[in-house]
């Protein structure tokens, strides 16, 4: 006789509550990529923030990893409809990196090694919502998942969380990134199912 434990039903209820509209839960970690995986060594890695006035703030690997870090556990929502719960990362909050950056910009264009870009409002990178992540699940981030370092901005669809992050340009006007410029939504809130332009 089949008995469904209260624990199992509890998990199912919790899963549906955490799943944005149109998404399904996956337990593996699909690899999505618009191009070949760049192989960047930590020695050559650099991350730079450039403001609307052209001021440049750069960190090498040693400088980044010497900064105070967070260990966020977050749910990921990909616009291709998979969601993955409770992923554990280590990284430096953009609040820390942008603390010394003077800007009046409202928009950010994130760029990656390999040429990928994504765009979002600057305020979505602040207030504990975004990190430059360099650890995943207690280890280095594998190259296919964006290592050595990637942007992590989990409250928006995961295409915003640029792999192999190399820099952020702060802009006074929105400049669409790689997918925002070809039909995908400028903002990309999974809870409002903002997949495509006009959603």
């Amino acid at each position: 006789m089949g008995v469904v434990s209260p624990g199992f039903r509890g998990r199912a209820r919790e899963s549906s509550r955490r799943l944005p509209p149109g998404q399904y839960e996956t337990h593996d970690f699909p690899v999505l990529s618009a191009g070949p995986t760049p192989r960047i060594t930590r020695d050559e890695w650099e991350f730079a923030v450039t403001t609307e006035t052209g001021a440049r703030h750069a960190w090498n690997w040693a400088e980044l990893t010497a900064l105070p870090s967070d260990s966020p556990t977050v749910d990921l929502h990909c616009v291709t409809k998979w969601s993955k719960f409770d992923t554990s990362w280590q990284g430096v909050s953009l609040d820390v990196l942008l603390a010394e950056v003077e800007t009046a910009a409202d928009f950010a264009l994130v760029s990656s090694y390999g040429g990928y870009t994504s765009s979002l409002p600057l305020e979505d990178l602040l207030d504990g919502q975004a990190w430059i992540a360099y650890g995943y699940d207690g280890d280095d981030i594998p190259p296919e998942h964006g290592g050595p370092a990637r942007l992590l901005v989990p409250h928006l669809y995961f295409w915003k969380s640029a792999k192999w992050v190399h820099g952020i340009q702060l802009l006074t006007e929105d400049e669409p990134g790689f997918w925002e410029g070809l039909g995908y939504h400028d903002y990309g809130d999974p809870w409002r199912e903002q997949r495509y332009q006009g959603d």
């Binding site: 690899v31 990529s33 618009a34 997918w179 070809l182 039909g183 995908y184 997949r195």
Partner: peptide, 29 residues
């Protein structure tokens, strides 16, 4: 590159993006 939010066709020589296609339920870009 098909494992992406759209299809990305790259030049086999230099790797630059030659063509991209995005298909939503009612529109192609």
């Amino acid at each position: 590159y098909t494992r992406a939010p759209g299809l990305v066709g790259r030049c086999p020589h230099c790797g630059h993006v030659a063509l991209r296609v995005v298909r939503s339920p009612d529109t192609a870009w």
